[in-house]
């Protein structure tokens, strides 16, 4: 029982990271209908900027975070303006493959600029783990969980309670009608790309100290985050958070009790089983296919 509890506590950090990454993915999907497969690469790029802020500009970690967050907002916006906006009318598969191309392009460019040697990023909150009696949780993990919950809460409140959220939901429900009703569709889609990439970048800033930073750092994380978003029902913010923690905890329990060799495989087996029982994810609604 004690080991079980410790596995649970040890998995919340990565759970939060998957949840945060999935939130960014889901936000973009909700308003623009595009699954942004480049989300991991874009987040790695922002983290490279964070590293450059600390090690090239020699600013403090806090200021480097601010610079990197602003950079992430700009990167997300540029993707939308330069690429996705131009293919807005193309079938959705084409838009998805466009983001796959972008994934390679961004990874390649960060590789050329910063190289593939792993780099270190400082923990946001270091120091000893908290707890006793065999139960420990890292301070950094507490920060990750807290930040994830705050971001999710703010997003949910904005979506459900504010005029901006109403507009975003209108765009998600029917873009054409929303435009006819005078909703500034372009602005909302742009904002969701900007903020979505920024939120996924936050997860990358948090994971970088745990695994070392490289242009391909987010590849595995992105796979888990994508699975988390789907598990949660792809389109549900609560679902993304729950999905992230479920995937994180499942991965850790599988590694602890069954096998580290088959960790990834078993996580996917679990997801397939869940999807077979609930074809629209844990929190998804059986909606008509979005086209």
């Amino acid at each position: 029982m004690q080991t079980f509890a410790q596995y649970l506590l040890g998995s919340v950090g990565f759970g939060g990271i998957y949840a945060l990454a999935a939130l960014g993915l889901v936000l973009i999907f909700k308003t623009s209908g595009v699954v942004n497969f480049a989300f991991g690469a874009l987040a790695s790029l922002s983290t490279m900027i964070l590293w450059a802020g600390i090690h090239r500009l020699h600013v403090s970690v806090g200021i480097a975070w601010v610079i990197a967050v602003v950079a992430a907002l700009i990167i997300g916006g540029l993707c939308e303006v330069l690429l996705l906006e131009r293919l807005r009318r193309a079938p959705i598969t084409i838009q998805i493959v466009l983001t796959l191309g972008l994934l390679l392009l961004i990874e390649g460019i960060s590789g050329l600029v910063w190289g593939y040697t792993p780099k270190g990023i400082p923990l946001v909150i270091g120091g000893k783990s908290i707890g006793g009696n065999g139960f420990f949780i890292a301070r950094d993990d507490i920060f990750i969980v807290a930040l994830t919950l705050v971001v999710a809460l703010v997003m949910t409140v904005v979506f459900q309670r504010s005029r901006i959220g109403l507009g975003m939901r209108a765009v998600a429900a029917d873009r054409e009608t929303a435009a006819l009703m005078g909703v500034p569709v372009r602005r909302y889609v742009l904002a969701s790309w900007s903020i979505g990439v920024m939120i996924t970048s936050l997860s990358a800033f948090l994971v970088a100290p745990k695994v070392s930073l490289s242009p391909t750092m987010m590849e595995d994380i992105a796979v888990f985050a994508f699975a988390a978003a789907v598990l949660g029902g792809f389109g549900s913010l609560v679902g993304a958070v729950v999905g992230g923690f479920v995937v994180g905890i499942a991965a850790n329990l599988i590694a602890g009790y069954l096998s580290t060799n088959y960790q990834l495989t078993l996580v996917f087996v679990l997801i397939v089983v869940v999807l077979y029982l609930r074809p629209n994810g844990l929190f998804g609604r059986a909606a008509v296919a979005r086209q």
Partner: peptide, 11 residues
């Protein structure tokens, strides 16, 4: 340059 070129061609 490989990923840049392949990604660039796709985009």
């Amino acid at each position: 340059f490989e990923p840049v070129v392949v990604g660039g061609v796709v985009v």
